[in-house]
Amino acid sequence: MTRGRRWRVVVLALAALYFLVPLVASAEFSLRAPGGGYGVANYTRIAEDPVLLSALFTSLRIAVLTAVIVLLLVVPTAVWVRLRFPSLAAVLESATILPIVIPPVVMAAGIAFVQANLGGPVFRALFDSSTSALTPFYVILALPFAYRAVDNGLAAIPLRTLVEAARNLGAGMTTALVRVILPAIRSAVLGAAFLTLALVLGEIVIARILLYTDTFPIAVVETGRSAAGVSVALSLASLLLTWVLLLAVSFVGGRRRRSLRSRPSVRRRTP
């Protein structure tokens, strides 16, 4: 038993070392002041830099739009598959793996081809701004994990019973979805939304190849050429912010989940 604990301590210590050193180093690096010593100048730069600031707002707008479209696509579909097409669950899960492995650079190549060679009002509207051009494709990038997060959330609730109960009480399918299911999987939905935020704040490949340089991550990289400290500070801040949001969801969701999970299951009785 003690030998069993020892490997665990070793693994966790190694993981802590490997994962924390870059973060600690980032923190240290970002706090370095130009003339020596430490200060928060790198973090306050964003407030004074109009380019960074407007890039941040652009990316946040893209993130919100992306999250909304992703959830509109994923939640009804995942519910529908679980209720009516359980046999398709495996197919859909494999399909949602695709965007993880279809390289963003290949997607970008295809889009760039359209951008360069096809005209017409539809495409002109699509490529009009970074928001309109990038959002649809960020949705594709975000689908895999959003689907998984929502589907895991649905697996943890007695979905069929909840829907049947709501419909039995006179609710329509849409009402059941919005008023009953959505609150029950709130933490999964928030988790998916925050992961979408993480993705949008880290994506540079498609934006770079399509030449939309006004997004936050691109601006961070560009700033890095002249002021590395600012880039590191902003990267670290966006990473930690996303993580704290997810952690908060996990704690809030976990507290609520307990009452939902009281459905019977074939679990070993406690002695």
């Binding site: 050193v21 988790g191 540079i204 961070v220 990289v221």
Partner: peptide, 29 residues
């Protein structure tokens, strides 16, 4: 579990800068 989600999907930019800060010429590590 939450950190796995963030790190697995954040990828890209923040990661690169964190490693430059840690293991670059003037990095802390």
């Amino acid at each position: 579990s939450t950190a796995s989600g963030v790190l697995a999907y954040f990828g890209g930019v923040p990661l690169a800068f964190a490693f430059i800060a840690a293991l670059g010429q003037t990095g802390l590590a």
